[in-house]
Write a protein that binds this DNA or RNA. Structure first.
Lengths: 345, 345
DNA sequence: CCGGGCATCCAAACCGCTTTGGATTTCGCC
DNA sequence: GGCGAAATCCAAAGCGGTTTGGATGCCCGG
């Protein structure tokens, strides 16, 4: 349990060959039970742990998964990303994989992937935040680097492995709930709509409206980075307009908090005068739980998504030729305090 | 620019030895300018990139920095951590280092560090969130693994390298500001007080009070994980008590948002009836900027801290014997909309 | 008693790079 | 013209594992 012996010393101490010791430790069959035990004991007496670089070199597998994060604020700052990472990281360490994260300038993202492939830094990667004009998957295929998408790449659903929640359906259901409560002027504060998930959410919103012969009012639909001020400012303007909305559908808890602030500042009451439904990624520092959660929401744990994405990826790496697989998660629709019947004038 | 040649093939194509090619590419002097150029051209024509595992094995340096994150919610979920990582990650990639993150069960944290050391997974690590009864630094010294602390380890300030903001001073100044505005009943919503930073903040708060012969009211001081509901619930209870505070000093923007929500729900106005000063870590998804920021705050960019911590660590690794160094950052005190003179009854 | 089969174990090659310790050539200078 | 220094380049020895292709010894049936 200390100095750091290597395989050679260990095998000498045991009067065995490196081959045998290596096999004993790695569970190969051609070594007697007794020897294996002897080896194991000596190994932990001497605190032997194989040098990972050497092992990686010899096996040709780097035992690591890469996550490339463009430095741009649109991605890394995202607490959702953090939670995803936490989930994935757990899976990795359970399987002996390392997680390596590269924060790079936006214009060097492709370069980062190429490096991972050519220098064999990772055995696979995860694509975060697929956009409308996505291209990373093509590069990765060319590089022959296994990958899993968190989200979906429009037009490449069949040929890639991905995990995603049913964004369209979630927002359709949320919209329907509001409609059922009598709201007809519903605002949508969406995420950036060059992101695939945001498009799907908007589609769900629009589908629900048109199913009841309503059309969205362009003045009530916005799209931006999901910050708190975005929620507050947008809501403030809309509430002060001539024809204010009675309900808000918001893409993130953080912005929803902003909306609630705006509502309060206008002297109105959330869940009474104005309703809010938000999507809740179940971020651990923004709990929305309790008997009756603060916000009515569509909820889907992004941490869980991270775990599953990692599972998928590790499987792909273990069985190379396998067909792409994907996981479609459904969000729960949870009633909280932020919704109520549309106020009658 | 494709297949992935290795050094051997590259050198054969050039009719040079591996030695020479390696040296040419790594900028060693004992190779002619002409040869170097020839090598460089062929290298990028063939898309050569050294296999990192092999290089690491040969050099004995893993060119990676480790971050061990206990799975426990108290740490990883922390968006502050994310922002720190983003900063550090940038520095790493600028210097050709990888960042490897291990998410581990709480009781396997020590194990994770031992593995990093014995399997040579990283050349150094960063200690996050030093607590009151900190011990990781002792382990790391025993393991001979360079490290930098984000925060300070009480009692080990001289013998460790760290970067920290002046928590005590920041909260002292914030408290003084409130006192100057005439507030005397000031609540403190602190982070978990087994964390070093939280202790210092409380000290700053108490120092400022006692300098004016005031003593903190225990009913107005709390300590917990810095979530939104924590802020809201705490504020709600205090505001509804017999002797409510007129100002809140809050350890994080997220909780401060909760406090603001509570104030609104009580029908009061933030910045008028009740003041708030929060600490602002300058998280990118929680901007508190603008002409007059929403919250009056003490601000210190944790992203910047991440960059600097990485710098410190890389320096330590580059110059082994060097003395521990540290960086003490001062927070800015920024006036926003959330503070005003104490209301007169 | 002998040869095949099985259980064990080992020497050596290999993974792809860095680096040591020369070997060879070139060049300036006396 | 000869000689040492400087400039170039190379073969080979690591780095610390895994893995191939046997050896060796033992047991058993014929």
């Amino acid at each position: 349990m200390s100095k750091g012996v290597n395989l050679k010393e260990l095998s000498q101490r045991l009067n065995l060959s490196q081959t045998t010791v290596s096999r004993a430790l790695n569970g190969y069959p051609e070594v007697s039970a007794e020897t294996r035990k002897r080896v194991a004991e000596m190994a932990d007496k001497l605190g032997y742990a194989p040098n990972s670089q050497a092992r990686r070199l010899a096996t040709g597998r780097s035992m690591a998964i890469g996550h490339v994060i463009p430095r741009s604020i649109h991605e890394m700052m995202n607490p959702i990303f953090l939670e995803f990472i936490a989930g994935a990281g757990e899976t990795y360490s359970q399987h002996g994989y390392d997680m390596i994260i590269s924060v790079v300038e936006d214009d060097r993202e492709e370069d980062a992937y190429r490096q991972i492939a050519s220098r064999k830094k990772a055995d696979g990667v995860i694509i975060h935040g697929p956009a409308q004009d996505e291209h990373r998957h093509l590069l990765l295929k060319e590089l022959n680097l296994p990958f899993v998408v968190h989200g979906r790449i429009p037009g490449a659903e069949k040929e890639t492995s991905w995990i995603d929640m049913n964004n369209r359906r979630a927002f359709e259901r949320a919209t329907n709930l509001l409609l059922d409560l009598g709201h007809t002027r519903i605002a949508l504060l969406n995420g950036l709509e060059n992101m695939d998930f945001a498009r799907r959410r908007r589609r769900g919103f629009e589908d629900a409206l048109s199913a009841r012969n309503l059309t969205p009012d362009a003045a009530l639909v916005r799209s931006a980075d999901m910050t708190e001020p975005y929620g507050c400012d947008s809501a403030m303007e809309m509430l002060n307009s001539d024809n204010p909305p009675t309900a808000f559908l918001v893409s993130s808890m953080i912005s929803a908090i902003g909306v609630a602030r705006a509502i309060g500042q206008c002297g109105l009451k959330t869940g009474k005068d104005v309703s809010i439904i938000t999507h809740d990624d179940a971020l651990s520092f923004l709990p929305n739980s309790g008997e009756v959660p603060i916000f009515t929401c569509t909820r889907s744990s992004v941490r869980y998504a991270g775990e599953k994405a990692a599972d998928l990826l590790l499987n792909m790496i273990a069985t190379p030729g396998a067909k792409p697989t994907s996981l479609h998660l459904d969000a729960e629709l949870i009633l909280g305090q932020s919704t109520g019947p549309a106020p009658t004038r």
